[in-house]
Design a protein around this nucleic acid. Sequence first.
DNA 1: TTAGCATTGTGAATTGATTCACGTCGATTG
DNA 2: CAATCGACGTGAATCAATTCACAATGCTAA
Lengths: 237, 237
Amino acid sequence: MEIAPYRTIGRLTRYWRTLRDLAAEGESHIYSHLLAAKAQVTAAQVRRDLMVLGYTGTPARGYEVKKLREHIETFLFPAPENQQKAALAGVGNFGRALLKFFSGRRPTLKIVASFEADADKFDRVIGGCRCYPIEKAAEVIRGQDITVGILAVPDREAQEVADIFVEAGVRGIMNFARTPLQTPESVYVEEIDLAMSMDRVAFFARQARQSEQDAQNAQNAQDACGAGGGAGERRAP
Amino acid sequence: MEIAPYRTIGRLTRYWRTLRDLAAEGESHIYSHLLAAKAQVTAAQVRRDLMVLGYTGTPARGYEVKKLREHIETFLFPAPENQQKAALAGVGNFGRALLKFFSGRRPTLKIVASFEADADKFDRVIGGCRCYPIEKAAEVIRGQDITVGILAVPDREAQEVADIFVEAGVRGIMNFARTPLQTPESVYVEEIDLAMSMDRVAFFARQARQSEQDAQNAQNAQDACGAGGGAGERRAP
DNA sequence: TTAGCATTGTGAATTGATTCACGTCGATTG
DNA sequence: CAATCGACGTGAATCAATTCACAATGCTAA
């Protein structure tokens, strides 16, 4: 079941984008360390990641941009004729922004339907796709063979909608609600908890500030009185 | 510098939310395995995470909801009087949605300013905070002592804005652009690459579908001809 | 008062991902 | 044509995070 570590899959899409840009700039070859620099990882990481593809570069020229890109595409994306489809639940502020954000942009996955509990929004076309009442979800998902679901509903509704989606055949979910979902083993869930990310950023930012200030204070203390305490840092004489 | 593994910090905010809900329901105590169930992790994980707090429960009653919550607050959040402030760059569809999403909701961190390159938006109040031209960013950030930045600008501008932010004193960044940022060691960056997440969800969804279909086909093949091949699954007689 | 029990806190083991380090290869150069 | 060089692929080592497993704890009930 595990074809490749999940972080590798993520990085491959970044490499793919970089290769697209490189191709646009007319580059024909690239070395692992240059690709690494552009993706902010180490060269060894790149080489390790690319092992899953079965494609190999040459020591002299590195990787062929065109070929490597094709291999990543073959590995990551379905053939265009069976493009995957996604549906979004919850057409609030955030849901609408997601619809606009993803519309057009992703050639590999298309959002083809949205669902809402609020009757005001039914049948309107928002962000390029029709909005159905949530009761029709199972029907639409089965009818259009939708495999990916995006949950932008209020926290308390997330699990319920997820259950409907999974039952109807969805096998991958992006969950923007802050309630971690319970789903069968076979369903992949990407939890995107922005409030959590925010708290974490705030925490580490505060810590960085703190340690800068501490360093500053230590500096001042040292400047003020020549004889430092027992536990302080050592400076060159 | 490393006070706790970064994943632990993230989970602590989830525990905190759960504790808030539990308190609202009038629960006074909770066991690690129940907290774990609500946060979708293992009991051992919860206990390990809580070690960083220095608070300890009792074998008989588990953790006191009120006290544990307070300890997490003390650990994660600054005192109310020096609440942290954040600024958002890029007031497009997505930026606006983020402003609305975070406004009010986060007591621990407040978005107090937004920045834009597009002159049409200057001075308007969007999502509860004033929109400044990006040129004023350094000044506003220093003036208001903003420590956290949220980047919702187009990919190619992200690095440039990040540099301005960091120079002005920002020490934590949420980056919604798909270009990984280069920043000094001391700045914490949370890369939120939605396109990457989307690709990954699509990939694993496809894989799950595939393996279900394979299983289905294997099943049909077995049903059709009684004598299975050498490598097939065994079924109970 | 004591035995029994479920739970905590944590050292040790495990798992999974990343990095190291080196044998190999193919181009280039003198 | 042989020597040199730099980059690739990958087994092994390292590092970080999670899970295991068990001694210690303090309640409950007889």
